[in-house]
Simulated assay, not measured.
Amino acid sequence: MTKFKILSIAILGVALLLTSCKQEEQQASQQQALPLAVAKVPQKNVTAYTTYPTAIEGTINSEVRAKVSGYIQKVLVDEGQRVKKGQVLFKLETQSLSQDAEAAKSRVNVAQVEVNKLKPLVEKNIISEVQLETAKANLAQAKSTYRSIAANIAYATVTSPVDGFVGAIPYREGSLVSATSAKPLTTVASIEKVFAYFSMNETDYLNFIQQTKGKTLQDKIENFPKVGLILANGQAYDQTGIIETVTGQIDANTGTVSFRAVFNNPNMFLTNGNSGKIKIPKYYQNALVVPQSATFEQQGQTFVYTVGEDNTAKATLITIEDKTDLFFIVDSGVKAGDLIILKGIGKLRNGMPIVPQESEFDSIVKQLKPLFQ
């Protein structure tokens, strides 16, 4: 075999080897290209919510206290019971008061007899008018004492000051109570409507006020959006509320401004002492949105994978203006119409090839679930 033939065979072998390697690389590249769902970044009208812890109280929350000292003889209601104004709640022991009343009544009778005896004597000028007036004064004092004791006996029957629902009853039959007892006998709360108290820090307050229409604070209060309520179990309350008052003053101790919202409570579901979160909506028109599940974080920054012209995944930094349960509202980084990868981002690295499978944005989003907040 000539040197020329040997060289030709060698060149042919190298060419075949290179072709084979190139085919293998192409095949490997095609195998690595993942088929992934992509969609165009849309503009949507969306509502985001800011939440604040809240405490619930009845619109009327009246303490019921004993006006006189005594032992509780009877407890005539139970906790949670609905009562009417004037309904008897407790009866206190009045035996000693009753004895005092009998003695006072006797003194009234004695004083009355004295006055009756002196009247004809004064008319006949047997005694002076001064003696009669003194007797009348003694009678008036005896009657006043009797009325005071009688009032205390009446106070021993404790009634409800308002229509509402009975709260906790810390004292039971046999307990000694008085006007100075540390705890009230109970509370009666009116809960047909309830107040929700919450606070904002100074920055949130200023942003909220400045973004609300109106020239004066009262104008702005009237234009505040209706608010929602998230209950302690994480469920949404089925009534919306109205913000009625705002102090407008920064609390020096907490650095916050206090608000009060009112909610209807037709089923008496809410009661005094409930807690939860107030949801204040903020509305965005034609906002750029991306699903939260289509993003990832690196060093405190948020990224999405956009699709490059060569069908490769490109890690793209975005800045977030706000968020909803499903979406991030994007301030910058992407624009309407950009293709982003919606699923499988955990398998991707920057520059990896993909096989884009474009879908309607809304059809993909319907399959998503809110991320845990």
Rank of each mutant, 00 (worst) to 15 (best):
A48H: 01
K124I: 02
K105H: 13
A236L: 11
G276H: 01
P291I: 03
N61D: 12
R82D: 10
Y305N: 03
V158K: 09
N109D: 10
I340T: 00
V262A: 13
S332V: 05
L348G: 00
V108P: 01
A179L: 02
G300Q: 04
L231F: 09
S258M: 12
D362W: 10
A287E: 09
E63L: 13
I354G: 01
K279N: 11
L121Y: 02
I341N: 00
N350H: 07
I127D: 02
A66C: 13
A28Y: 13
A236D: 10
Y171P: 00
N253C: 05
G308F: 07
K40G: 00
S190W: 10
T245Q: 08
A39N: 03
K193D: 12
K282V: 15
K136V: 05
S98Q: 15
N207K: 08
K136I: 05
Q239L: 07
Q73R: 10
F4Q: 11
P170L: 01
E202N: 14
K277E: 10
G228I: 15
T50G: 09
I209H: 05
K117A: 03
N311Y: 14
V83A: 07
V108K: 07
T271C: 02
E244W: 06
L18T: 11
E133M: 10
V162D: 05
G344A: 04
